[in-house]
Every structure is written in C-alpha cells, then in structure tokens.
C-alpha cells in the first residue's frame, strides 16, 4: 500500500473515531485524573482554595461518618444480594413452568423495573407510611398486626433495612430474573429426561443438575448486584434521606453531602477513590467472569 493511501486510510479512521474519542476523553477519563488533583486541595464550589497534599485522605480514615456510610453500604449489599439471588431464581423457575400464566407472570415480575427510580421510591415511601399506607393497612386487614399497633417501617432502625431492601428487590429483580430465565432455557430437555429415566427425583434434579448449570449466572448476578449496591443512592436518598439518624446513609450520599452541601469537594473527591477501588475490584471480577463465559 502506498504511503499516501495509508495516510488517507488513517485519516478516514480517525474521522470515525474522533467524535466518540473526544467525548470519552473529556467526560470519562479526564474526571478520573482531575479528581485526583482536586483531592489534593481544599476545593469549594467556587474552585481551588489551597494545596493540602494528602490531608483529605488522612481525614476520612478517622471520620466515623465515612466508616458509617461504608458500613451501611456493606450492610445493604449483605442483605439484598442473597435476597435478590434466591428470589430471582425462584421467580425465573416459576415463570419458566409450562403453565398458561407464564407470559403474564414474566410481565408482572418485571413490571416494577419499568418504573423510574423516583416513582418506585415514592410508591414505596407511601406504602411503608404508618396509618394510611398500604403495608400496615394490609397487615391490619389480614389480622397479622393488631389494629392498635402501627409498625414504623421507615423510622425504626430495625425495620428500615428490611423496608429498603424489600423495595430494592421488588424494583430491580426483573433483570436478574430474565438472566436466570435465559439460562434455564439453555438447559436442554434431554438432560431432565435422562435424569428422570435414571430415577432422579425433582429435588435431586434441582440440586445436582439445575443448580450447577446455573452457577455462572448466579455468580454474574451476585457480582452485578454487589456493584449496584455500592452505587446505591437514589432510592435511599428519596425514601429515608439516609435516616433515621444517618443509619442508612450510603457512601454516595455522604460524598454528595460533602461536595454539594458542605462545599468540600476536595474531601468528597478523596473519598470517591475508595468507592472507585471497591467498584473496580467488583467490575474486574465481572469482566473476568463474562470473558470466561464467552470462551
């Protein structure tokens, strides 16, 4: 190929790449570097104030609110991840049975996932409100909760995690259910038949055939859910505002409050790198898992 043609080819390729390259560099890569620069400064909404080295990093190591937010995020991940995995598998199996309601069940189980985060949060918030909300109302009607008693779903520190976790599973489980459904549909009917011929009971089929074959999907959902948990902000911010008494405040909310309410962007940027590190490890795990699944 002549030099001129090579040059032309390169310029054409560049023209195709450039629009995305520019956006990607400015809005995805540059903030990672800029964030580090910001984290070395006292930095307010109006801009740079002064260079303070690694003081922002030293500060969060002894900030009990930072550790509290990290703990809350970890609690949230520890509760919702197993809940979501087990429920998603159950829903997928129920919606995969050869009944007439199959299609209806799939649509209904996924329906909450269609709601925007704020709608889902407000429906949940009102559902969990005492006296007039749906949850206590139903419990009263069924006689589970005495008429004189109201459960404070969002104020009681013991109940609040249950409420938020239940809402999150309700709102986000649809996608994981479909991941399990597509994995279940990849299991050939022959395998079940062969197992049945060998005299395996339904229970044995589940534990020695279905569960092992679903293992890659289970890992994928577990990691995706843990990633989602460390990114949690919207629903908690709107339902409890991080309360009662900061007991549900997640990492991103604490970063948000420092940057935009306490005017301390340098500190917020420094804390962001902890979140970055956690998410990096989790998403590396996810990448490795998916690459392995493709081969």
């Amino acid at each position: 190929m002549s030099k001129a043609r090579k040059r032309k080819k390169f310029l054409v390729a560049l023209a195709f790449i450039l629009p995305f390259f520019i956006l990607y560099t400015i809005f995805t890569i540059w903030p990672v570097l800029q964030g580090f620069y910001v984290s070395l400064h006292k930095w307010g909404l109006m801009g740079k104030q002064k260079f303070i080295g690694f003081d922002n990093y030293a500060k969060f190591l002894t900030d009990k609110n930072f550790w509290g937010a990290l703990k809350n995020t970890a609690i949230f991940a520890a509760i919702t991840t197993p809940m979501l995995v087990v429920m998603a598998m159950l829903l997928a199996m129920l919606a995969n049975r050869g009944t007439k309601m199959k299609k209806g069940l799939r649509i209904i189980y996924y329906l909450p996932s269609v709601l925007s985060v704020s709608v889902a949060s407000f429906i949940a918030k009102y559902t969990f409100t005492p006296y007039t909300g749906l949850m206590n109302g139903v419990l009263h009607s069924l006689g589970i909760l005495p008429a004189s008693k109201e459960l404070q779903w969002l104020q009681d520190p013991k109940l609040v995690w249950i409420s938020i976790s239940a809402m999150t599973v309700w709102w986000t489980i649809g996608f994981s259910m479909f991941l399990y459904l597509s994995a279940l549909q990849d299991i050939s009917a022959d395998i079940y038949e062969a197992a049945a011929l060998d005299g395996a009971t339904k229970r044995q089929q589940f534990f020695s055939i279905v569960l092992p074959l679903l293992k890659p999907t289970t890992w994928l959902i577990t990691l995706l859910q843990m990633i989602a948990c460390f990114k949690v902000f919207g629903q908690i911010y709107m339902i409890t505002g991080g309360g009662p008494a900061s007991s549900t405040r997640p990492m991103i909310q604490y970063i948000y409050e420092n940057a935009f309410e306490k005017n301390n962007m340098g500190y917020a940027a420094a804390m962001s790198y902890v979140l970055f590190g956690i998410l990096l490890i989790l998403s590396l795990g996810q990448q490795i898992l998916q690459r392995r699944g493709e081969d």
């Binding site: 995805t28 990672v32 800029q34 910001v38 970063i255 940057a259 962001s272 790198y273």
Partner: peptide, 14 residues
C-alpha cells in the same frame, strides 16, 4: 473500569 458514580464530583467540576 471507571464507575461514573465515583467520578461524579470531578465530572461536575469539569
């Protein structure tokens, strides 16, 4: 490898 949530503060500045 870059989680958008973790770069939200510098993104705002940019």
């Amino acid at each position: 490898m870059v989680p958008g949530e973790a770069t939200i503060v510098p993104l705002f500045i940019t």
